[in-house]
């Protein structure tokens, strides 16, 4: 996974705050077929991590591709990855190329 996306970056976000703190738009059957980060909230885990940026497109979450998932489904996958107590991090494969 990810090998066919030469500009992709794996970012590990530690669950350092009670919220992930990103807003996303997009999903299958919209103008933005993969979720794009539109906001990073100060004080959230993503902001604390320092490696996610507004405008990046999320390709995978914990190795699970978001391709083909509609917006609410993609949002649920990300939310569940953050809530899952088995891991103290969430891995995001992101790309700056939209």
């Amino acid at each position: 996974p990810g090998l066919l996306e030469p500009t992709s970056t794996l970012v590990r976000v530690m669950k350092s705050a009670s919220t992930l703190g990103i807003a996303i738009e997009g999903g299958a059957n919209t103008r933005q077929p993969l979720p794009r980060i539109v906001t990073i909230q100060r004080g959230g885990s993503a902001h604390n991590c320092g490696q996610l940026k507004v405008g990046q497109v999320i390709l995978e979450v914990n190795g699970l591709s978001l391709r083909g998932h509609e917006h609410r489904d993609a949002a649920r996958i990300i939310a569940e990855a953050f809530k899952n107590k088995e891991k103290d991090y969430v891995d995001f494969l992101v790309t700056d190329f939209n």
């Binding site: 919220t19 990103i22 807003a23 059957n29 919209t30 906001t39 949002a75 939310a79």
Partner: peptide, 15 residues
């Protein structure tokens, strides 16, 4: 007209 222009915008979700 490109097909993608007919696709709807997405809602935004805060996570």
């Amino acid at each position: 007209r490109e097909k993608r222009l007919t696709l709807p915008p997405s809602e935004i979700t805060l996570l």
